[in-house]
Amino acid sequence: MSPVLEIRDLSVDYGTLRAVHNVTLTLNKGEVLGLAGESGSGKSTLAYAATRLLQPPGHVPSGEVFFKGKDLLSLSDKELQVLRWSEIAIVFQGAMNALNPVISVATQLDDVLRTHRPDVKRPARTARARELLGLVGIPADRLTAYPHQLSGGMRQRVMIAMALALEPEVVIMDEPTTALDVVVQRQILGQMMRLRETLGFSVIFITHDISLLVEFSDRIAIMYGGRVVEEAPAGEIYRAAKHPYSQGLLSSFPALRGPRRELKGIPGSPPDLRSMPSGCPFHPRCPSAMDVCGERMPSLESVEETRRVACWLEGVHV
């Protein structure tokens, strides 16, 4: 497997507060990489920082993001603008407010095509827009509709159609189905994954819903307090998560298949950026915390060939 997007040692600050600490992650070609964590764990911040969409006071003090041999963080604005959407597209929470309410779906799709493919004539662009809507199962006559005339699910599909307009290499999905009901959620994700097989793009799938990740992604990275605490193939996370936080996240959702498990949830609440606990940020909530956990932060180490864990419970640290 060849890497498409490599995030190396990326840190993100909001003013003087560090929201993401030295994260290293690799997205391989054709892969769905899940990014899970509670609200405030830094998962969306990481994605926005990597695509340079972070708004002030957010900024990136250190790190690199390699895409096709180029560091995204050092591209000029012009190069970045060309690369955006044509190579890396983002599916936002379209059900909420990601579509401009005062211009039609057609114009919003066309905006992308017109900006990035200026040599394509209008009829061809319209044909492409109709084709894109067809791809996500929306009748082509909805092209002239305005966002408020569409249901939440349809808006999300429009968002996906828009993301695929230029056949990007990487699609980042940021909580793409959070505002939708469970049935529509699964339909849309299923469709997205089928499109991925035919079009061959790679996906970074960000959600707090780890059960969706287990079902739809190949590999999962779990974030806590701005750090990746565990990274492993989806099946292994589901079967045998190693980090106590991952175990806690998994037991907060009912299993869809397999034997019944007790729902537990995680006691306490996510850490505050302004007062991060010393040592491992999870230790105040951790059921198996030891003395060392409050003193030093465990580094993210490979425990097997395909998994990395940042926890003192793992043998490699001793």
Binding site: R84, N97, N100
Partner: peptide
Amino acid sequence: TAEDYVLVARAKGLTQKR
């Protein structure tokens, strides 16, 4: 400017003017 659709427009790589 803080609305999602402005963020989307930036992610779409549209020109600043647009």
